[in-house]
Design a protein around this nucleic acid. Structure first.
Lengths: 280, 280
DNA sequence: CGAAAACTCTCATGTAACATGAGAGTTTTA
DNA sequence: TAAAACTCTCATGTTACATGAGAGTTTTCG
């Protein structure tokens, strides 16, 4: 009296593939009502649709086939609830992760955009820059002398120190270094601090937090790490020429750090900054 | 002069597993600076850390290794941006899906909770029920006569009709059926409509929308489909006894539909409802 | 009734990004 | 020089299927 249908019809009736039905059979999630012992053909009862619906619904809720299997075996509503509550927590977690990912992607796109719209290397400007919060570490070695490897190493330490505290990732934030005003004034290139420019999340991660004052900055843009000193000197000269007085530490800001491309193209982008004040 | 480190140190220094480094080598994402041709041992330059960082950062942004590979091959920032924008869209999509999943899980948990707190089968109550929006289809056959299979078939049609329009899934909503007031009054069990109780999303999906008035309902709870008619009659009798007059169509609401468990336990939960008015 | 068409079977493989382990060879340390 | 520590390749497992090969079965049509 109950009419049985072969796998193809069952699949079509439920918008499932045949392969899926076979898998469910094999896993014991949904055994066909009758299997021909000779041919091995599977025949389903239409009423099994409801069980299939249940499986698919649980899948839509994000449960794994293994979870569903145990639910169907135990036939216990409490178990469903447990699994769902567990799933709910997972979903919350995933939502957080996705949002963080989204922010990071946005930030990176912004940074690429900024790079794209950056002025030609060597351009000097006078800009007002808002207050910035930074997370810094002191420089143990002076990489202006010790070379780029020392710089990398310092960054590396900052990085791993932060990673231990669960800080997302460094690449998405712009990096900076500074030279103390007195040193810079007297032409000594002595790295003082290395830091990252942060956003609102920053304060959770360390006590080495500082603030860079807002104000006017004389800036020069460049795209090659090796030109920093010469550009910095040019910028200093420029300030002297126009009568701008130094008003704080010198800053080198690494606006984008796509330095994985072996510098074949102009992929790095720096902005050197000298805070200035004007004689009134 | 550049000191090379074996794979173990490289892995430890970057909090990556050895297997990962080997995979990246194999895929060409990060080739060790030197590979011993005899032993096959991989030796990395510390500077390769930056490339590894880049890879891991791109991974954190959700890009696939294949994407990263093409980015690293082309060495083109524009390509990064393209991939990121694409990724951003994917993230939006995923966020939508996750939120929908979350809603569905919550709804299901609620429904299980409700089931758990439901009164004993046979309990009669008088309740105020708020206005409800339903999405209905007319019943072509009277399943009170034709049997549960006909009911299932009707549901099936409703289901597949909705699925074509992209409606999420049925299991997460409670189902209902109704009998016209005149039929019910005269003791004729003739199914009139089958419907789902919906939420705010409902209106997007069909024109077969109707509203069930708010008001007082005489209700009886039960956990077995087969008892519907007898319980409905009891409820009707109850109304007569207390002098409540029928004020609309009879409704059978299937509050939870975990009928995959072969009814071994009390997993189904119905609430029959008769809208009533009082003589003043 | 027989042939062709349509259907179904099992088994193998691929997907993404690794994790894990076996068995053999290499380097470092004591 | 032997043991300990490290590394190699290759195979397999993970998830929920999709895809395809080659062989067998059922249905349909003339």
């Amino acid at each position: 009296m109950t009419d049985l249908i072969p796998i193809g019809k069952m699949a079509a009736a439920n918008r499932v593939t045949i392969a899926t039905l076979r898998l469910y059979d094999q896993m014991g999630l949904l055994r066909p009502a009758y299997t021909d012992p000779d041919s091995g053909y599977r025949y389903y009862d239409i009423k099994q649709t409801s069980r299939l619906d249940f499986i698919r619904y649980m899948r839509e809720l994000g449960l794994s086939l293994a979870d569903i299997q145990s639910i169907l075996e135990k036939e216990d509503i409490t178990l469903i609830e447990e699994k769902l509550i567990e799933k709910n927590n997972q979903i919350h977690q995933q939502l957080r992760e996705l949002k963080a990912m989204h922010e990071a992607v946005e930030r990176t796109i912004q940074s690429i955009e900024r790079y794209r719209k950056s002025p030609a290397s060597g351009t000097i400007s006078l800009e007002f820059i808002d207050q910035r919060t930074i997370l810094y570490a002191p420089c143990k070695v002076n990489f202006y002398e010790a070379g780029i490897e020392a710089y990398e190493k310092t960054i590396q330490e900052l990085r791993s120190g932060l990673m231990e505290k669960g800080f997302p990732q460094l690449l998405s934030y712009s990096l900076g270094t500074s030279i103390r005003k007195s040193d810079f004034e007297e032409g000594r290139f002595v790295a003082d601090r290395v830091f990252i420019f942060g956003d609102q999340h920053l304060k959770d991660y360390s006590s080495y937090i500082s603030v860079l004052d807002s104000g006017m900055y004389a800036c020069i843009y460049l795209d090659n790490f090796n030109d920093e000193i010469s550009c910095a000197l040019r910028l200093k000269e420029y300030c002297r020429e126009y009568g701008y007085a130094l008003d704080g530490d010198y800053i080198c800001e690494e606006l984008t750090e796509f330095n994985v491309f072996d510098m074949k193209q102009r992929n790095m982008f720096l902005r050197l900054q000298i805070p200035v004040k004007f004689r009134k």
